[in-house]
Design a protein around this nucleic acid. Structure first.
Lengths: 196, 196
DNA sequence: AGCAAAGTTGCGCAACAGGCAAGTTTGGGA
DNA sequence: TCCCAAACTTGCCTGTTGCGCAACTTTGCT
């Protein structure tokens, strides 16, 4: 009768625990000075189990971002089908970020971590790329028939994610001068002119 | 007196040899069934030396793409300073791809490899990301003073590379129906409307 | 000719991904 | 309520990797 079984919940909890352990250790010792062993320990699980959940530390570290972005994707899905893809994406982003965006402390912490440790940039890019293809599928659904090769869907998704990524990185360099969402909204508006 | 010393040339040759060895073996056995050892052997060099040139197989595999893209960046640099960044980028791409783009057999081979082995997608994304930041620097030079936070430069570079990447991937799925550059040009035109 | 800088190599080690099989937990019938 | 199959965890193990270090070789400059 539970909406989702115990099994599922336990899995999610373990994944989350691993993620949080990774983040905690990375913040404390620096992301390049931690081992998978240490993360598993910190999460109270065997090293082998870590491998069942994540392919490597970076994936564990950015799991939170992926979750956040999946939440954004859900908002996109919830937008009225009548909206154009780009409109739906920006509207969903507005909902997602405008209110409490900058306030998630974990999100900010991860951001700062990336800023201070350029070696993490690769993993960040990877995370955005993952979401890009998930979003492309959603966009494609809105373009049934109008996009024979599927270029447009992928183009829109890629551009959207690229703008969010660039905005994030710029904001991390100038966090005091502007809010993330202000920056992102403006960038989206400018870049999106091709899709309206 | 030589324009470039023997030292430099030898290094370039070794790097190229490693790259070609990696590509050859990947094509023959599949990219996930080859070891760094094997690549170094094939290139007639020690495993340790491989590490002096590339951080991992993927980097070796995509070295050719990076070279290609750097050539494109050179074309960008050569465009008149009076052109807007986006105009310079697209014009350079036109020069680069329009003529012989699809004809470089290595380039096509790598493309097919990525298409058949999704595990390589990560490395491909990484390669484009690398070029993105190199290009951003070039674009920034054209926006002296007009781009206080540096957003615009990064935005333009990111969008440009995203379009090329998406176009490539779409083209790889439909190579018969259209030429790469036709597809990319159209995508650039559409997406670039925000930057004109 | 000769020396300093750059490049190569072998050795060694900590770390890691992931196959396999034995144990443990969960959930859906009967 | 009980039971079993499927799902999950864990330990063990192997092949691979990235990189520091120190010895050796090659290159370039004078």
């Amino acid at each position: 009768m539970t909406a989702v079984g115990l099994r599922e919940r336990k899995k999610a909890a373990t994944r989350q625990a691993l993620h949080e352990a990774a983040l905690r250790l990375a913040l404390e010792h620096g992301p390049d000075r931690i081992t998978v062993d240490a993360i598993a320990d910190e999460a109270g699980v065997s090293r082998r189990t870590f491998s069942n959940y994540f392919a490597n530390k970076e994936e564990a570290l950015f799991h939170g971002d992926l979750r956040r972005m999946r939440a954004l994707a859900d908002l996109v899905r919830a937008r009225p089908a009548s909206e154009s893809p780009w409109a739906a994406l920006t509207a969903a982003a507005e909902e997602h970020y405008a209110g409490l965006g900058d306030l998630d402390p974990e999100w900010v912490a991860r951001g700062r971590l990336v800023r201070r440790h350029p070696s993490l940039a690769a993993a960040q890019v990877q995370t955005f790329a993952t979401m890009e293809s998930e979003l492309a599928a959603e966009v494609a659904a809105r373009l049934q028939g109008q996009d024979p090769l599927g270029v447009r869907a992928k183009l829109v998704a890629a551009t959207f994610m690229a703008v969010l990524r660039v905005s994030l990185n710029v904001w991390l360099e100038h966090p005091a001068e502007i809010s993330y969402w202000e920056l992102a909204r403006e960038s989206l508006a400018e870049t999106g002119r091709g899709f309206t």
